[in-house]
């Protein structure tokens, strides 16, 4: 059996499940609309198709937030999703606010700049959340959440996330099922935070490798040694396991110093859907 076959999902059930998730978790809070940051990449495209089915095209706002160095292809692909789904859209360039901030420093490395872009996009999305009375639907997949390959309070920020329990490979399966435009499925994954950026080059491994390793380590409880025995280099498996551990903080709200007998999230324990 091909190891990737273990990540096969039943797209029909999973898509209807995610559509219900988006519809119910939004409408029960009293909202009816969603705002999504559309990058032209596969993750946000899949989320747009799901949100459109859940809420109706008139209730979904896709916001394109290019920086001056973003690839033209990204905007073109995002517009293909807009056209195909019929959702509302807006192009909001982040170049001015980003450059205004960056210019306050003599120099800035690309990671800091990437974080600034991600957080400006977060500000834009949450501002449009208030403007349109719409909830921000997140677009981080399980692979990047586990690897911590995202900006804390940037692209990782949202009100709810339909795809956070799907590995990148599974996002591709869903994209094909939902008939996301071919150019989006075929291109190399990129956060597009700087010119020519490639996720897989930056990470140093392919998404398929990461997905198989993560799935065995965390979903199936394999030990590192057992994953190595599947045919992966020890340094690769260890490196991925280390990333997951190091980035646990990104997956949780800030920790609180316990003083009282009842501390928020420690022994004051309620779901967010309290009363909903």
């Amino acid at each position: 059996m091909n190891l990737l076959d273990k990540l096969k999902i039943d797209c029909e059930f999973i898509s209807s499940y995610l559509i219900e998730f988006v519809r119910q978790e939004i409408t029960k809070t009293g909202f009816t609309k969603a705002v999504i940051g559309l990058s032209g990449g596969i993750d946000s495209s899949v989320v747009a198709y799901i949100a459109k089915e859940a809420l109706g095209k008139e209730n979904v706002y896709g916001i394109l937030m290019p920086y001056k160095l973003s690839s033209k292809e990204s905007v073109e692909d995002a517009l293909k999703v807009v056209k195909d789904t019929g959702i509302n859209y807006k192009i909001f360039e982040i170049t001015d606010p980003a450059d205004a901030y960056i210019s306050k420093f003599d120099e800035m490395d690309k990671v800091r700049k990437g974080n600034i872009f991600a957080r400006l996009r977060m500000i834009t999305l949450f501002d449009h959340s208030q403007l349109y009375k719409a909830l921000v639907v997140g677009t981080s997949n399980k692979t990047e959440l586990l690897l911590g390959y995202g900006t804390w309070y940037g692209d990782m920020a949202s009100c709810l996330n339909p795809i956070g329990d799907l590995y990148k490979n599974q996002i591709y399966q869903l994209a094909r099922y939902l008939r996301v435009p071919e150019s989006i499925i075929k291109k190399k994954p990129s956060a597009d935070l700087w010119v020519g950026q490639s996720d897989e080059e930056e990470l140093g491994f392919s998404y398929d490798e990461a997905d198989v390793i993560l799935y065995h380590l965390y979903d199936l409880h394999y030990t590192i040694e057992e994953v190595v025995n599947l045919g992966f280099k020890r340094e690769l498996v260890r490196g991925i396991a280390d990333r997951v551990k190091r980035n646990q903080f990104k997956r949780l709200p800030p920790i609180i110093a316990k003083i009282s007998k009842r501390t928020i999230n420690i022994d004051f324990r309620y779901l967010r859907d309290w009363g909903l």
Binding site: Y17, E20, F21, Q24, E25, L160, L271, R272, D273
Partner: peptide, 8 residues
């Protein structure tokens, strides 16, 4: 049926 904090 229904969802509670993402659990369906």
């Amino acid at each position: 049926v229904g969802f509670e904090d993402g659990v369906g």
